[in-house]
Lab assay of single mutants.
Amino acid sequence: DTFTFTLDGIEVRLHGASEELIKTIEELLKRDIRWEELEKWIREWEK
């Protein structure tokens, strides 16, 4: 599955994202998160 969203005018596609990761990103997007914050968060998630 591919999860697609737009952040700061950039279309982002995550391939093979888990349901948990998708739900977490959706929550972060509701908080009007900035790209830099999401990028940092995703790097931490990957560890």
Rank of each mutant, 00 (worst) to 15 (best):
K47H: 14
L14V: 14
L29Q: 02
G9F: 03
R13N: 15
E36N: 11
T6E: 15
D32C: 06
I42V: 07
L21V: 13
E36I: 13
T2M: 07
H15N: 12
V12D: 00
W41M: 14
K30W: 05
E37K: 04
E36D: 14
S18E: 04
W45V: 06
F5E: 02
L38M: 13
K40P: 11
D32G: 13
E20M: 11
G16P: 12
L28E: 02
K30D: 08
K40S: 11
E44Q: 11
K23T: 10
V12N: 00
R34W: 03
W41H: 15
A17D: 02
T4S: 12
H15L: 10
F5L: 06
D8M: 04
T6P: 03
T2R: 03
H15R: 06
D1Q: 09
T4F: 11
E39F: 13
L21F: 08
E37L: 06
E11Y: 03
F5V: 13
R13E: 15
S18K: 04
R31D: 09
T2S: 07
T4E: 15
K47I: 12
G9P: 00
E20N: 09
L38W: 15
G9S: 02
E46K: 06
K47C: 12
A17N: 03
W41Y: 15
V12G: 01
A17E: 02
L38R: 00
A17V: 13
V12I: 13
F3A: 00
A17I: 11
F5H: 03
E11V: 10
W45T: 04
L29A: 02
W35F: 14
E36M: 09
E27V: 11
H15V: 14
E37T: 09
L28C: 08
G9N: 03
F3I: 03
S18Y: 03
F5G: 03
I42C: 06
D8H: 04
L14C: 04
H15G: 05
R13H: 15
I22H: 02
D1W: 03
V12Q: 01
K40C: 06
K40H: 10
E39L: 14
K30V: 12
I42Q: 01
G16H: 12
W41R: 12
L14M: 11
H15P: 08
I22L: 05
D1A: 08
D8Y: 04
T4A: 07
E26L: 15
T6R: 02
E11W: 02
L38Q: 00
L14G: 00
A17K: 04
F3Q: 00
T24A: 15
K47F: 09
L28N: 02
E44R: 05
T6N: 10
E20A: 12
L38T: 00
I10Q: 09
E37S: 06
G9H: 01
L14K: 00
L7N: 02
I22P: 00
E20R: 07
E37C: 04
L7G: 01
V12T: 02
V12Y: 15
I25R: 00
I42M: 09
E39Y: 13
T24Y: 10
E44H: 10
T6C: 15
L7Q: 02
T4W: 13
T4G: 09
E36W: 09
L28H: 06
I22T: 05
E46M: 14
I25C: 02
L38E: 00
I22V: 10
G9D: 07
R31T: 15
I42A: 03
D1L: 15
L29E: 00
G16K: 05
E11G: 01
E19H: 12
E19L: 14
E26W: 07
G16N: 14
T6K: 02
L7A: 04
K30E: 10
K40A: 12
E26N: 11
L28D: 00
L38N: 00
R13I: 15
I10W: 04
R31A: 13
E44V: 06
T6L: 14
G16A: 08
K30Q: 10
V12W: 04
T6D: 14
K47Y: 11
D32I: 06
S18A: 05
E46D: 12
L28Q: 05
L29M: 06
I42F: 08
I10A: 03
I22M: 06
I10S: 02
E39R: 08
W45S: 04
R34Q: 07
W45F: 12
K47W: 09
F5M: 04
R43Y: 12
T24W: 13
K40R: 13
E36S: 13
I25E: 00
G16E: 05
W45L: 07
E20C: 08
I33K: 04
F3N: 00
I25D: 00
G16R: 04
W45P: 01
G16C: 07
L14T: 01
T4C: 08
E37R: 03
E39M: 15
I10K: 08
E27Q: 10
T4M: 12
E11Q: 05
I10R: 05
L28V: 07
R43E: 10
R13M: 14
I10P: 00
R13A: 14
E44Y: 09
W35S: 03
D1N: 12
K40E: 11
F3C: 03
K23D: 06
K40Q: 13
I10F: 09
W41K: 12
T2N: 11
L21C: 06
E19D: 12
D8T: 01
W35E: 01
K40D: 07
G9E: 06
G9I: 05
T6A: 05
E27R: 10
R13L: 08
R13Q: 15
D32Q: 08
L28K: 06
K40M: 11
E27N: 11
R13S: 15
E27I: 08
L14Q: 00
E27L: 11
K23M: 11
A17T: 04
W45K: 03
R34T: 14
I10C: 13
L38H: 00
R31L: 12
E26Q: 14
I42N: 00
K23N: 12
E44G: 08
I10N: 06
D8V: 01
K23Q: 14
W41I: 15
K23W: 06
E11H: 04
T6M: 13
E36A: 14
S18D: 08
R43P: 06
R13V: 15
G9A: 03
L7W: 13
L29C: 02
L29R: 02
E46F: 15
T6G: 02
D8L: 04
L29P: 00
W35I: 11
K30I: 09
I25W: 01
L21G: 01
K40V: 11
K23S: 10
T24K: 15
E11P: 02
A17Q: 02
L7S: 03
F3P: 09
L29K: 02
H15K: 09
I33L: 07
E26I: 13
L7R: 01
E46P: 10
T24I: 13
E27T: 12
D32M: 06
